[in-house]
Simulated scan of single mutants.
Amino acid sequence: MTKINVLTSSSLAALTLTSVAVSNTVNAEEWQFEATPYVWAAANEGSAGAYGLGPNGDINPPPADIDINFQDLIDSTDLGAMFNFAGKKDKWLLFTEFTYLEVSDNATKSFTTAVGNSSAEIDLEISGTVLDVAGGYQFVVKETFQLYGYAGVRYMDLDTDISIDASGGILPSEITMGDSWTDGFVGIHTSWQFSDKFSFNTRLEVGGLGDVDEAYMAHIAINHQISENWQLKYFYRYQKVDFKGDGFIYDMEITGPGIGVTYTF
Rank of each mutant, 00 (worst) to 15 (best):
W192A: 10
G152C: 09
V103I: 10
Y100V: 03
V140S: 06
V153H: 13
T113C: 06
L171Y: 06
G187M: 09
S76H: 13
Q193D: 08
V103P: 02
T129V: 13
R154P: 06
S76F: 04
N84E: 01
V153Y: 14
P172C: 02
F70M: 02
D58P: 09
E97V: 07
S195G: 02
G136S: 08
E174V: 01
P61V: 07
A86P: 02
N56Q: 14
E125R: 14
S173K: 08
G128D: 02
D78E: 07
K91F: 06
S163W: 10
V141P: 03
T160W: 01
V186W: 12
S76P: 00
S119I: 00
E174W: 02
D157P: 12
E97A: 13
F194Y: 14
T108G: 12
S119L: 04
L147D: 02
T99W: 07
D72M: 11
K142F: 11
E121T: 08
P62M: 13
F139L: 15
V115H: 13
S167F: 14
T160D: 01
F139S: 06
E121S: 15
W92G: 00
T77N: 05
T77F: 04
Q193S: 09
T77L: 09
A107V: 04
V133L: 15
T99C: 12
G80Y: 05
N84S: 12
S127V: 01
I68A: 15
L79R: 14
F111W: 07
N69M: 08
Q138I: 02
I66E: 01
A120Q: 06
D67A: 11
L94P: 00
A81Q: 06
R154E: 10
P61G: 07
A114I: 11
T160M: 05
I68F: 12
V153F: 10
Y150K: 13
V130D: 08
S104C: 05
D179T: 07
I126L: 10
A64T: 06
T144M: 13
G168Q: 05
S76I: 00
I126Q: 05
S167G: 10
D75V: 03
G135P: 09
R154K: 14
F70E: 00
T113D: 06
I68H: 11
Y137K: 06
D67M: 10
F70N: 11
G57I: 07
S119G: 03
N106I: 00
I164T: 11
D157K: 13
I188A: 15
